[in-house]
Every structure is written in structure tokens, then in C-alpha cells.
Design a protein around this nucleic acid. Structure first.
Length: 693
DNA sequence: CGGTTTCGCTTTTTT
DNA sequence: AGCGAAACCG
């Protein structure tokens, strides 16, 4: 029985396979390479999927094939991605492909949720106590600041976290980090790393990196656990494999084991996260580590016109490659790629906004089919201004996430403390929020006492001996606070976390405190609404999550990032403003790639660090987002760090095949004289740049 | 203890 | 310029 196709998001390109009728069983609508990737079941497989070659399609179809044709139980299939968004999309598409079939137990999630799941189920073996907390980056920073303060070290917490994270991602334990330290600063970080790990253990907490690192250690050191998880993971699919770091790669290998049932999908040309530990060479490493690895290349692009692909191919040809690959498409040459010289960032923005408005009524010209891509978030500002001026609706991705808002973090800290009395990070965050007149002096004494007794801060409050260290009103306040938390922890067990948190916030008059804080009543209201939204999420997760403990709910929330609202807005007919990094995986009919300048793209830091290739891949990602129209813009002058500096067009412009391009000067001016002049100036700059061809 | 001022930095971002 | 964090002052 043929099943109907997955409803495809509207911004996807139409596929050349004709009618959108397909089933999990029939593979006629796949090209030979895609089909080979889906059907290959005899061993490990690496799918090198070029941009726009139907990567997600292959993964989702393969999951369906495994279950529907190859007879795998859904609970034996595991697919991992990097982002919640990718996981969500994949889940939806698989569900549509397998409509009507029971897919209970099928795992499609992020690396980190999988790690959390492993830790939850193997908690005791992992050396964690019930209710362990998950610290996010800011919590880690705060913890490190605390440790640094104690050690009298003035190193920046952010730098330390960065260093520690790199070690963790490479599975380097503190001892090894210390002995391998190249200089005193590194040694200092390594010692900090050891202290930090100790503190995490004391807090019964893990950080984001631990969600990978600890499962790796667990599966490596405990054969019976390894067998359990290998037995569960009869086929593992890994999306964006070029983005895996050392620890994630180790986890993949441990889960796959000797059985080798792995489908890894990736593209080394789209590796843009090496700066945070991703190892694109993991793709090649698979070849050595998994004998009999089959490699399938997906080179037919269904997204972009010939000129755009020619530009992309020429650009990326300047990089060294792990695998050779050449994208082609049969969509025809299309329009030339335009390169536009602008006076400054305001002109660039006005010009692009104007073009978007002009394009509005053209085929594929809808606002939702337009994207402005740039290297850094600060570049968004002029675009926002220009678009607002022309009343063009836009959607800005990036920005402060729901969970980094102070009020949400406060509420989360309360929840964490209810679940895990040993979570000192959470304790410290909210012990005096709202104000309870428990100041640093008191906390200092409490901390000293707690560490002498080897207990956490909250439990220490209840100990008789504390009266020797803290006296009078301060002691009373601590005891009152501890009793109050304990009471609500019991309430959480009885009536659920949401009810407990609600009571807690009411009794503390948190809403009133918010009003005291922010001067603007509106801001306070907004913040309170955020807290309410968190509450409703907690409620929903407790209701839906079968037998999920409070700690589970809190950890999952930390991983989830509640940004559904953004998704809704993104779906509307709005121009998309985003960084090149966040554009990966998306596509638009019309793309403006702004700020094609030396020191911006490639970024100055990357020029200095000699990581130009990653910048080139970033440009490549930008170019390959476009289906039909691509415009590359650069400014001649740009305000940087408060100063107006003149800029040089990006070297990447020079690397593009000039016969695919059409150069243009400025032109957003109303005055034709100026426009002409600007145009000439822009062209002159370009000619000199190109060495006169 | 808490609010204000000054200093210093400044790519990308997910979990 | 603009933001966040430490330092400083009332």
C-alpha cells in the first residue's frame, strides 16, 4: 500500500522526481547513489552528501527502509543529529513515511539527549546520584569563577571553560592535561580543570560536555553496559558527521561496536565548527577504523542553478580535501551571480532591503524566500534598521535564548535545587533571590563549614554544628531557607514540580521582586510571562513524559531550549536574517551574502590563526544556500569598534569564476549622479583587485 | 549591601 | 559603539 509523502517544508526545493507519491518500500524516486545509500545494509557506510544533494532525504528514507523493509525493530534504530531542530524535522519526516506503523522506541535525537539518556539509565555505573543536575554554559562559568576566586587566580572563567571543554571533547582527563601542558597558562587551566571536575562531583552535577564524555567512559569501562547499548543500537545513523568531536566519535564507535551497522552522513566541505572542537577528519578516520566501510557520494544537487554551483565548486576547489567530490545539477545555468560594491554598511543594508522589496512580486520573490547572510551577529543591526524603514517583515535568528534569561535561570535553579539538594550552583544562584538578607559573609562561612564537613551547602544548613560557624539571625535565615526548600521538595514529590515551583515563587513574591528589579513595568511583565511559560513547559513535560522525574524534566528542558516561538515566526513570510553558521541546512530562492570583505569573511581572527579554509567553507555554505539568485555584497568602508575603516573585498570573490559573475557598483542613492560615481568607484576598486582582467 | 561607574574586549553557536 | 563584568563608592 503506497503511503503519502511527508509534507515538505515550503522552503524546500521541488524535487525532480515527479509526483510526490512514495512509500517507504518503493525507492524509484531516489537517484542511484541515494538508493545505494538507503539499501546498503551489509556493513558500515559513509555517505558523502554534497550541499543540496538530498542528505536528510536519504537518512529519513533509510530509517523507514530499515524498519519497513529490512525488518528492524524501531527500538533498535538510533539516529543522532546535532540540533533539536534537525531531530524534530527528521522525526516528522520519518513519522510521515511510516504513517500508520508503530514506531515506538525509535530514537531520533541529538547526541546530547542520547548521552543524557545513557547516563539516566546507567546512573549508578556512571557514579551519579539520583536527581543529578545538568549545568549549562553559564552555570559552568559561574562555577569556574567561584573556583578561580578561591584559588586567587585572575584567569578569565570563559577562557578556562573553553580550555576545559576542548580537553573534554578530546577525552583528555585533568591529569593528562596537566602533564601535557605546554606553558604555565595551560597548566593553570589544567589544574582548574581538576578542581572543576571535583566540584561537579560534589554537586552531583554534569555539564554539557559530560553528556558525551561520561557515557564514553561508562561504555568503555563497563562491558555489560556496552553490550546493553550495542544490543539496543542495531543500526546507528549519524547526521552531519563532519561536526563530530573526538568524544562524539568515540561514542559512535562504542555504540556501533564490532557489528558495524553504521550510516554516517556528512560533508567535509561544510565543516564549519572546527573552532569548537569538531573534527572533520573523523570522516576519513571511519575508513581506517571500520574495515569494509562503503563510501557513497551524493553529487547531484537538486537545489541550485548551474552558475551558483559552478561558483561553489570553484571556491571550494581552493581547499585541501579529504574526499573529492563535484556537484552538478540539471537545473540550467540560471542568472549570473551579482557582486555589489557598497559605500558602507548602511548603504549595503539599504541596497539589499530595496532589492528585496523590488523582488517582492517576482516568482520566488516572497519575503520568506529571501535571506540575508553574514559572518557575525553584529552585522544584523543595519539590516534590521533598513528593513524596518521599508516595512519589510523579517525574522532574526540568533540572540538571547529563552534559557539564558535571568528569570528563567532563576526558576530553573529553584527546580534544580528541589531535585538535587547538592546542586551548590543552583543554591548560590537563588539563595538570595529574592532578597533574603543572606550575604556573601554568611555564605562564605557556610561554604567553609560545608567543605570541612564534606557536605553540600543546602544540607549543611540543617546541621547542628553549623551554629559554631554561623550565628544569630544569619543562621536563622539559612535554616528558614533550607526548611522552606525541603518543604517544597516534598510538595514536588506529592503534587508535581510545577505546583511546587508555583507555590515557591508565590511565597517568595518573585513577581514583586521582578518588578522591583527592572525599572520598566513592561520588562517585568515580560519576564514574569517567561517564568509562566517555563511553568507550563514543566507541567506539559511531567504530564507527557512517562515517569520522568523532576531532575529528568529539568535536564531535558536545559537541552531543549524552548524556542518554538521562533519557529512559528520563521514560518511566516519574512526575510531571514542570520549568520552563515545558522544558515547551514537551509535554502532560499534568493540569498544576499553580505560583508564579503577581508577581515570579515575571512574573519580577521581566522586570518591570524591561519584557518582560512574554514572561512572558505563558510563562504561555500553561504553560496550553496541559494536556489536561483545569489548576490554578494561588500562595503568599501565599515564602522568597526567605533572607527570607520576602509575595507578590501574578500579574497573569496577573486576565487569565483568570473564568467558566472556580474559586477555592480553602488546604487541605492536617489541621486543618479552619485549613483554613477559610486558605481565607478566600486568597479575601479574591483578592477585593481582583480589585477585588470 | 547595593547601585553606579569605569574598564576592556570584541567570530561563529549548540547542547 | 556597545556590552558585560569588575571595581568602587555611598
Amino acid at each position: 500500500m503506497p503511503k503519502t509523502a511527508a509534507p515538505r517544508p515550503r522552503r524546500r526545493a521541488s524535487r525532480p522526481d515527479g509526483p510526490a507519491r512514495r512509500s517507504a518500500r518503493g525507492l524509484d524516486d531516489l537517484n542511484p547513489a541515494q538508493r545505494a545509500a538507503v539499501c546498503h545494509l551489509d556493513g558500515p557506510l559513509l555517505v558523502l552528501a554534497g550541499a543540496g544533494s538530498g542528505k536528510t532525504r536519504v537518512i529519513t528514507r533509510k530509517i523507514a527502509y530499515l524498519i519497513d523493509v529490512a525488518g528492524f525493530e524501531p527500538r533498535h534504530v538510533v539516529a543522532v543529529t546535532f540540533t533539536n531542530k534537525a531531530a524534530r524535522e527528521m522525526k516528522a519526516r520519518v513519522a510521515a513515511l511510516l504513517a500508520g506503523r508503530d514506531t515506538t522506541g525509535l530514537t531520533v535525537c541529538t547526541f546530547h539527549s542520547l548521552g543524557l539518556d545513557i547516563l539516566r539509565r546507567e546512573r549508578a555505573l556512571a557514579g551519579l546520584k539520583a536527581g543529578f543536575s545538568l549545568l549549562d554554559e553559564q552555570d559552568s562559568d559561574a562555577l569556574l569563577r567561584e573556583i578561580l576566586r578561591h584559588a586567587g587566580d585572575d584567569a578569565a572563567a570563559g577562557d578556562a571553560r573553553w580550555a576545559i571543554s576542548r580537553w573534554k571533547n578530546d577525552l583528555v582527563p585533568p591529569g593528562a592535561a596537566l602533564s601535557a601542558a605546554a606553558d604555565p597558562a595551560e597548566a593553570r587551566h589544567a589544574r582548574l580543570y581538576a578542581d572543576y571536575e571535583r566540584a561537579l562531583r560534589a554537586y552531583n552535577a554534569v555539564d554539557f560536555d559530560d553528556l558525551i564524555v561520561r557515557p564514553v567512559a561508562l561504555l568503555r569501562d563497563h562491558p555489560e553496559a556496552r553490550e546493553r547499548w550495542q544490543n539496543r543500537t542495531r543500526h546507528l545513523l549519524v547526521d552531519e558527521c563532519q561536526d563530530t568531536n573526538g568524544a562524539q566519535y568515540a561514542l559512535v564507535r562504542l555504540l556501533v561496536g564490532a557489528r558495524g551497522m553504521l550510516t554516517a552522513v556528512g560533508d567535509d566541505d561544510q565543516s564549519i565548527y572546527a573552532w569548537r572542537g569538531a573534527r572533520p577528519e573523523n570522516l576519513a578516520r571511519l575508513q581506517q577504523d571500520l574495515p569494509g566501510l562503503e563510501v557513497v557520494k551524493l553529487e547531484q544537487n537538486y537545489r541550485s542553478t548551474g552558475r551558483i554551483l559552478a561558483a561553489a565548486n570553484a571556491l571550494i576547489a581552493n581547499n585541501a580535501h579529504l574526499f573529492e567530490k563535484r556537484l552538478w545539477s540539471d537545473l540550467g545555468p540560471g542568472e549570473p551571480i551579482r557582486v555589489v560594491a557598497c559605500r558602507d554598511e548602511a548603504h549595503e543594508a539599504a541596497r539589499i532591503a530595496g532589492e528585496i522589496l523590488q523582488r517582492r512580486h517576482a516568482k520566488d520573490g516572497a519575503f520568506g524566500e529571501c535571506a540575508i547572510l553574514y559572518r557575525g551577529n553584529h552585522q544584523a543591526r543595519p539590516f534590521e534598521q533598513a528593513l524596518r524603514e521599508l516595512n519589510v517583515p523579517y525574522f532574526l535568528s540568533g540572540g538571547t535564548s529563552f534559557f539564558s534569561r535571568g528569570e528563567v535561570k532563576d526558576a530553573m535553579a529553584y527546580l534544580r535545587l528541589l531535585a538535587n539538594p547538592e546542586d551548590n550552583a543552583a543554591f548560590l544562584r537563588i539563595v538570595n533571590v529574592p532578597r533574603r538578607e543572606i550575604g556573601p559573609t554568611t555564605l562564605e562561612k557556610l561554604a567553609a563549614y560545608a567543605s570541612s564537613r564534606h557536605v553540600a551547602l543546602l544540607p549543611a544548613c540543617d546541621e547542628i554544628g553549623l551554629s559554631l560557624a554561623v550565628e544569630g539571625r544569619a543562621l536563622e535565615r539559612l535554616r528558614t531557607f533550607a526548611g522552606w526548600i525541603a518543604r517544597h521538595a516534598r510538595l514536588a514529590d506529592a503534587d508535581g514540580a510545577a505546583a511546587a515551583l508555583r507555590a515557591l515563587l508565590r511565597e517568595a513574591d518573585y513577581e514583586g521582586w521582578l518588578r522591583e528589579q527592572g525599572a520598566a513595568a513592561k520588562a517585568a511583565e515580560r519576564r514574569w510571562e517567561n517564568v509562566q511559560e517555563l511553568l507550563s513547559w514543566v507541567e506539559r513535560m511531567q504530564r507527557d513524559g512517562d515517569g520522568a522525574s523532576l531532575a529528568d524534566v529539568v535536564a531535558r528542558l536545559t537541552l531543549q531550549d524552548v524556542l518554538e516561538r521562533d519557529d512559528e515566526e520563521a514560518g511566516g513570510d519574512r526575510v531571514h536574517l542570520m549568520t552563515l553558521h545558522s544558515a547551514k541546512g537551509l535554502e532560499f530562492a534568493n540569498v544576499w551574502l553580505a560583508g564579503m570583505e577581508e577581515e570579515l569573511l575571512p574573519h580577521r581572527a581566522s586570518i591570524e590563526a591561519d584557518t582560512i579554509e574554514e572561512e572558505r567553507r563558510l563562504a561555500y555554505v553561504g553560496v550553496t544556500r541559494a536556489r536561483r539568485n545569489l548576490v554578494l555584497t561588500f562595503a568599501e568602508k565599515r564602522r568597526r569598534f567605533g572607527e570607520l575603516l576602509s575595507c578590501e573585498p574578500s579574497r573569496f570573490l577573486r576565487e569565483l569564476p568570473q564568467d558566472t559573475l556580474r559586477w555592480e557598483g553602488g546604487g541605492a542613492d536617489t541621486n543618479p549622479e552619485t549613483r554613477l560615481e559610486r558605481g565607478r568607484a566600486g568597479l575601479a576598486t574591483l578592477r585593481s583587485l582583480l589585477g585588470g582582467d
